[in-house]
């Protein structure tokens, strides 16, 4: 039981970072300016690196739990699972929209990840704790970078402020899901290695309020929130992401170069 909880929890952390990495990578070659193009694709690669660590760990655990089954790998977990197997939160799969929308999503996500990894550093599971400790340095920079952009655009020109305001409207109802514990998170908390996401919410909101105040943006009331991603009920966008991301492995299984 505890092993299954750890597998699901690792997959959840892996899926979140993989799908957001894939979305951010869509900006590669299209950034508003070379320097920011590189900055965002750096972040994308950081997230991809984190997802690899979690997938590798999940693959090891799955193979240990089912020694007689066909072994899985980080690649098969990323490229051979279908939409309903993915546990990523919905906000990670939403289309990028404009630059403001993309950096606002990164800010929301990094603010959450920063708090999560700070807690996870002390996890009773040594591997999760080690991944969190390594990733926290990256996330600290992601949070700094995305905060600066939220402030810059929110407190920028009339147009940038308007665009940030609509980005907030667009994304806000997707910010609640991450703090609602899915069954596998409850199991993980019970088993002692997981973090209760609800416990991160007030600190997250504090950070958002701090940055929004500086960015002259209004923090919306909490309101109704979208959910479903954690339990495999995804928006129509995830299928298209997977179609693009998994095409090669689906068409030419085990292809390599």
């Amino acid at each position: 039981m505890s092993s299954q909880a750890l597998i699901n929890y690792s997959l959840y952390l892996a899926d979140n970072t993989l799908i957001l990495a894939q979305r951010n990578a869509e900006w590669c070659g299209h950034g508003p300016i070379l320097e920011q193009d590189i900055a965002l694709t750096n972040i994308s690669l950081d997230l991809l690196g984190q997802s690899r660590s979690f997938y590798q760990y999940a693959a090891t655990l799955i193979n240990e739990a089912n020694p007689s089954a066909t072994p899985v790998s980080e690649d098969s977990l990323a490229f051979r699972r279908d939409v309903y197997d993915f546990k990523n939160i919905l906000i990670t799969e939403l289309p990028n929209g404009d630059w403001g929308n993309t950096i606002l999503r990164q800010f929301f996500f990094s603010a959450y990840q920063f708090l999560l990894y700070q807690q996870m550093k002390q996890s009773s599971d040594a591997t999760l704790a080690a991944i969190a400790e390594k990733s926290l340095k990256e996330v600290t920079y992601h949070l700094r970078w995305s905060s600066e952009w939220v402030i810059r655009l929110g407190d920028g020109t009339e147009e940038s402020h308007d665009r940030m305001t609509s980005a907030v409207e667009n994304l806000w109802s997707f910010t609640g899901e991450v703090f609602e514990a899915a069954p596998f998170e409850k199991d993980a908390v019970e088993a002692g290695f997981g973090i209760d996401p609800a416990s991160l919410k007030s600190a997250w909101l504090e950070k958002v309020t701090e940055i929004f105040t500086e960015a002259t943006l209004a923090v919306p009331p909490s309101g109704w929130m979208q959910t479903g991603g954690k339990t495999g009920k995804h928006s129509e966008y995830l299928g298209f992401i997977l179609a693009e991301m998994q095409f090669l492995q689906r068409a030419y299984p085990d292809a390599s170069w």
Binding site: L34, E35, Q36, I38, A39, N42, Y141, R144, W145, E148, R152
Partner: peptide, 10 residues
Amino acid sequence: KMAIENARDV
């Protein structure tokens, strides 16, 4: 500030 961050990334 942005120049230093960009330099870090580039």
